[in-house]
Amino acid sequence: MASVLIVDDEELISSNMAAYLEDEGLEVDVANSAEDALRLVEAGLSVQVCIMDMRLPGMNGNEACQALHRQDPGIRFLLHTGSPNYVISPELSAIGITPDHLYRKPIMDMAEFTATVHALCAGR
């Protein structure tokens, strides 16, 4: 089963998103920080798509994506940010993240987002 990892320090964001994606038949794990996410992958969690909040306590989303990518270059990322001025950093471009992978909060309709998740899962 396709597996999704949501990284967000805002618990209600990740749980709501998880609920939606689970209803769509996806298997979802949740991490409240970058450090947690790295630990989960370290412990052997197989992740196809990681939905990453960019502003996180401790390690930020920018570093977390790179670290996860080093752990498992197969992970595909979707960035989910509340910062309206956020632009994709060169390091993240370098690992294949494009503006198509960038979603700004609030996502008003999860359907389109979910379709992207499915597509990324299938693309693997």
Partner: peptide, 15 residues
């Protein structure tokens, strides 16, 4: 502030 506001808005929308 936008970041702080967009997060709760996201929660409401998805809920």
């Amino acid at each position: 502030m936008a970041h702080e506001i967009n997060n709760p808005l996201g929660i409401i929308a998805q809920s």
